[in-house]
Design a protein around this nucleic acid. Structure first.
Lengths: 176, 176
DNA sequence: GGTAGACTATGACGATCGTTATAGCCAGCG
DNA sequence: CGCTGGCTATAACGATCGTCATAGTCTACC
């Protein structure tokens, strides 16, 4: 739900109803309220994607990238362009001026984890270390941005176009 | 304000107060309410960025890209990682199931405009047309995604890393 | 000076938000 | 059987939301 509506537009009432759980139970299992819900949602998504990434990266960076792209493409298409990445959704919520909410910190960690996985695989396959780091960041950033563009345009074209360039880039980096 | 909080978390009351305008006036000048506010905000930002892009692209795609990057980098840094791109913020709000709100359509047009400007400049400088389109999309997507990552991590590193790769890519494309 | 019309001030409307309190149900153990 | 304690149901709290209606103010033209 966060990946569809964003964090602030996702109400606990709706969430409980969608989960067919009573509203009262929400605060029994998540005593810290909405922040905890958001944090655990981000971490859950992060781990889910990271698992898929780890598995597919065993066949090399090209296969890993393809899996990453396919995964997000499926989410956008299956939701008829209504859903995106919940980690990005949490990232663009404004935090209070003086502290960093745990959900935002979790989002940062998730991004870092995805980048680390990609960069390590690139290095293992002969890419220059510095370039590997930059490419991993570029991949995550481009996919996240392309997802949002797909939702606005109601087309998968942005993701598909970015995918082509990213694939060529990765292929070039591991044989240079 | 949309670029900080997102659309649904931005209240008309707060907006009017921030603009030192009376709340009643909002519905006098924007009779269609919040949707109209969002649409005009998206279009305004789109035109503002497009103007800067057109100006800098006269010196070539490399200069244009650098201006695009610098512009967004400044917004993130000046806001102490609290603000991002309002067009992206509007893009990831879930629309009603049966219709497309005008603000979302405006966001799609803005993205398309930025891509068109970049792609045209790339073609004018000798890039392969197909590659030019893909690269233009990649640039916009990567910058939008990197902005969100910067906010989560409270660092400009994602944007700077993506920038390096994008600059190399553009340079390579216009001399291939 | 008076009057029309653009703008503002004010307050209200129903709805929904996150969160909490409290009363009730209902398993499991003695 | 009785009772304890985890879970649920329900209602309420104050706050805030988008939107609208209405009464008031003020400017500008006749």
């Amino acid at each position: 739900m966060i990946s569809r509506r964003g964090l602030s537009a996702t109400s606990i009432r709706e969430m409980a109803k969608h989960a067919k759980a009573p509203l009262g139970s929400t605060y029994h299992y998540f005593p810290e309220g909405k922040q905890q819900l958001a944090t655990e949602a981000v971490r859950h998504t992060g781990e889910w994607v990271a698992r898929s990434l780890r598995r597919e990266l065993e066949a090399g960076p090209v296969a890993g990238l393809r899996a990453f792209l396919t995964l997000w493409r499926k989410i956008v298409v299956d939701s008829d362009f209504h859903a995106g990445c919940p980690v990005l959704a949490v990232s663009i919520e404004e935090p209070p001026a003086d502290e960093i909410p745990p959900a935002l910190a979790a989002a940062a960690e998730v991004f870092a984890q995805w980048e680390t996985l990609l960069a390590a695989s690139l290095r293992d396959h002969g890419a220059d270390p510095r370039r590997a780091d930059q490419l991993a960041t570029l991949v995550v950033a481009a996919v996240e941005g392309a997802l949002a563009m797909c939702r606005a345009k109601r087309t998968t074209e942005p993701l598909d176009r970015a995918a082509q360039q990213l694939q060529a880039l990765i292929a070039d980096a591991i044989e240079g």
